[in-house]
Write a protein that binds this DNA or RNA. Sequence first.
DNA 1: GCGCTTTGCCAAAGCGCTTTGGCGGACGAA
DNA 2: TTCGTCCGCCAAAGCGCTTTGGCAAAGCGC
Lengths: 338, 338
Amino acid sequence: MASIAEVAARAGVSPTTVSHALSGKRRVSPAVKERVAAAMAELGYVPSRSAQSLALGATRVIALVVPDISIGYFAELARGVEAAAVRRGYNVILCTTGFDSARELHYLQMVHSRAVDGIVYAAGAPPTDQELSDLLGAMPLVFVDEEIEGTRLKSVISDNEAGGRLAAEHLLGLGHRNVLILGAEGEPFSSSRRIAAFQRRWEDGGGTVAATAWGRFTESSGALAVAPHVASFRAGDVTAVFAINDLMAIGALYELRRAGVRVPEDVSVVGFDDVMAAQYCFPSLTTVRQDVPTLGQVSTDALIDALEGLAELDGEQLKLPVGLVARDSTGPVRGGRR
Amino acid sequence: MASIAEVAARAGVSPTTVSHALSGKRRVSPAVKERVAAAMAELGYVPSRSAQSLALGATRVIALVVPDISIGYFAELARGVEAAAVRRGYNVILCTTGFDSARELHYLQMVHSRAVDGIVYAAGAPPTDQELSDLLGAMPLVFVDEEIEGTRLKSVISDNEAGGRLAAEHLLGLGHRNVLILGAEGEPFSSSRRIAAFQRRWEDGGGTVAATAWGRFTESSGALAVAPHVASFRAGDVTAVFAINDLMAIGALYELRRAGVRVPEDVSVVGFDDVMAAQYCFPSLTTVRQDVPTLGQVSTDALIDALEGLAELDGEQLKLPVGLVARDSTGPVRGGRR
DNA sequence: GCGCTTTGCCAAAGCGCTTTGGCGGACGAA
DNA sequence: TTCGTCCGCCAAAGCGCTTTGGCAAAGCGC
């Protein structure tokens, strides 16, 4: 564990010069630079990040806060975040909350202990605690797919409204008029936006919402949520399902298959996200595609821009486009009601 | 950003005392302790991690190195790693290599810059570079599901041999005798172990291997790899597929469905991992279950034990049990060859 | 009442880096 | 030759914490 002092001694210069040779912040003569380089190589010197962090007052580390990394959406988000961070010389600390607000708070503290320079926050709405929201306001933080009411926090989101509308239009176009909505518990922002926009467009188009069922983003919760409604599908009362994410849609497909309800003959299902699995499940899932890695990448760039003084972290929203991907889980409604 | 000195001043004591009050490493009278606590609260003091790291020579951060976090297996691994780390007061930095050895090397450097205390390495075999393997040997590092030949590095693995055998026995028991193997490019350790054990048991049982096709862990690569063999399935020559991970198996299911090959009537498919999607795909996938989060958790505990001097990082392997989960993608072989 | 051990606190050094002001020496211009 | 400029390097302070040795006061036994 060579230190800068040892390198300096070996090269016959001062630590200052070594530092400058390394950072390029001041000129160092080529001759000396070479001696320093040689000394570093011989000693296998690598600067200590802790010491740098302390001296610079910045760690070049950001935190990514997500509920559960094993949910496909968040994993893809993480990929985008990490890629963008690395590109700019930052590392990312993975923080999973498991939907637990105590852990959220714990992680938000990390910027106070200066363990990280900033936070990409994708764990749904944070505790609305007053004290906390004050903290948030003063913290380099960008929200992903979430919008905190009344604050001026930066957020990067997909165009959830457009997505909801797209889904509604697709189903309306196929002749569907009565739908089951699969939402997510805790009503995260993106979920409620998707539902609200879907519903508005749906009712404008003459549709009715049979019911709204709640899950928690996973396949199993989707299956569970849809199960009580199987009878309505069998009866032909309800002919469509709109799920606010793909995993729950896939869980629904599974449950419907088990119950002998055919997709898309008896009921059409549309998801949201377009995760990998959406293409490979059966029937392949019609869904609203959002570019999740890009979401992560854009958020991260915004955060780092702010950290480096290249931009402000104003309350402005960046909204990314979405698009409908029609696959095999949706089809025209058949016949009338029985 | 209050410092320990400010807290000390406010409480009317020395920084030393504040430190002791906080860490409990020496006695501090209750009266003083309370004054310190009050001062900290008023100032909103949180100790600086960078300063602590520098003083202590340890960061309480570990790195998790994986090829791609959006591959389900690695996401679940990350979940286990993070959970174990948090439980012991550590943070984890996410390092994705994208199968790129330059980035691997870059990340391995992080322990030299003392940005992290140790590494959980799950990115397949590292570059076999001599220089590098010397580094590895001297580094607090544990391998996940990988074994580096000839070194004495700690590794935590699933019982891949048993898994391979289990898969073979399951298919043999259903009467299959000719199989297509779906392996992974770059021949990572776990992949080759699974294949070798499968093949040994398979041939012992009188089976033959029609071919081995190669993918790269993803659904799409699985679909691609299986495509050229569709004719043999149609002809009834080959009646089974053994994939070394679930995602490729799921890709295979997709491709077979597209090609009109029925599963399990025409061909049986078995995967490996038992990721979430395995249950929800169609037909639901028979697979070898390994407990991936536990794999991560055990690795992480081993690493942290070593970091804290509680254990040695010897070359001993920890091997976790696996089990076969029979679902709908496998069935008895039908009739003879045409 | 004397020495002895605790007890509770403090001073100062050190972790390894960055940064700033300064200072000789070389060089060009007058 | 002399003065003014750069150029290239160094000394020292500071980032915020932990740790160790020490020291006075308090408590104890005899």
